[in-house]
Design a protein around this nucleic acid. Sequence first.
DNA 1: AAGTGGTCTAGACCACTGA
DNA 2: CAGTGGTCTAGACCACTTT
Lengths: 248, 248
Amino acid sequence: MAEEHAVIQVALDRASPVPLYFQLAEQLTSAITDGHAQPGDPFENEVAMSERLGLSRPTVRRAIHHLVDQGLLVRKRGLGTFVASRRVHRRVSKGSLYEDLSIQGRHPSTEVLKVASEQYPKAATALELDPGTELLALRRLRFADGEPLAIMQNWLPPRHSSITQEQLEARGLYAVLRDHGVGSVVAHQSVSARLPTAEERALLKISSRLPVIAVSRTAFDPSGAPVEHAEHVYRSDGYTIDLVLEEN
Amino acid sequence: MAEEHAVIQVALDRASPVPLYFQLAEQLTSAITDGHAQPGDPFENEVAMSERLGLSRPTVRRAIHHLVDQGLLVRKRGLGTFVASRRVHRRVSKGSLYEDLSIQGRHPSTEVLKVASEQYPKAATALELDPGTELLALRRLRFADGEPLAIMQNWLPPRHSSITQEQLEARGLYAVLRDHGVGSVVAHQSVSARLPTAEERALLKISSRLPVIAVSRTAFDPSGAPVEHAEHVYRSDGYTIDLVLEEN
DNA sequence: AAGTGGTCTAGACCACTGA
DNA sequence: CAGTGGTCTAGACCACTTT
């Protein structure tokens, strides 16, 4: 007995340089995030989908696996593939950590306070440069519904000194970095809590009794080269991270 | 010209229920983490390895891809595969978040303070149970070199009430949960900072002026069923997370 | 028994890199 | 140019779950 399942319309372009499995994965992802397939719904099986789309089974499999990795689908041997519960959807790309404060349902905005060249021995050391190296220093203020939530300071090595305030305001730091050839990174991050400085109290509009969360991070590209050093200060009202654990 | 590369000895058991690609991936991982292959070293290419081991190229590819995902290897089209810089090795499994305080080089230990059945409406609600449900409550104290670092409180649904203090002391919470059939989970985690309560000051041996980091987390299995609710309190001296960003 | 996903093979062609 | 990884195919067999 064939279970009911949504038939997802897919348009493949074999002339495109984008791999077929990726084209398929993106369109399946859209179908789920757009709500055309609901959590718990059975998903079309591999064999049927490969016949319907004129693709080999491994290619379809690879696309589906992509969605499983992101938590959009759950596969059960002998049973089938199902759309996962919405809450186990993993946020891919930078959303999982960067700039991901507790902005659920609130309107986020960013004000760029400073884009300048300066020396900061601590960051230079973290970036494996001479302590006196001139770094590109960024200072931004993050808001939710107009209320200040975080002070974000970043230092980048000189090779990125062409970044401008306009680019940052339009696209965000990591979008700009991607244009500079920075793809995936691994970050080593340290979290601590302390009382705010006078300057932080003023910027975040908090009292001296309310602690802040201080995050210090250095990011490296896959070859191990340092990409950026960040020191962010958050209001202690809580910010949220979605994390995947126990890879298995 | 064939570049020098370490030839990694691999023993495959085709009779084993463990997939070949996984057997291979584990032995390649060991070779790197044991230092038989050093960061920057060129790695044997796919075709040569598949011929040497009598495996098909897709199977070898899958094993290598596994290591790339963990940041152990870096592949460069047209160039080859190389052992990654040590610092971009991702800690897989639970190490990436759970119980991963700043214990670098220090001796960790855990004291189990309580294993009991109790009601806690907040946790029960997070676990999607009736607020009056009896939950398994765990309370543990985490040390580094004998110094208290964190108070860890966890609540589990009744189906795990068979967990004992002996199991926890011997193997840790997530190792025990794995025996209960809990594999990978997705956690939604909220981080905030506040001043410690009197009880927290006593347990962590800190003054009332030193803030603590409060982490609240609920973990779900791949089907979306709640697995555990945790409320952990850390000393603010800083704890470290290693995170992977920008999946790409 | 039928249907599902999980693994594996043996090829093929292409895109990119460096000499 | 030769060598590398990236993609894709068309099958095969197995393990698991439900009917």
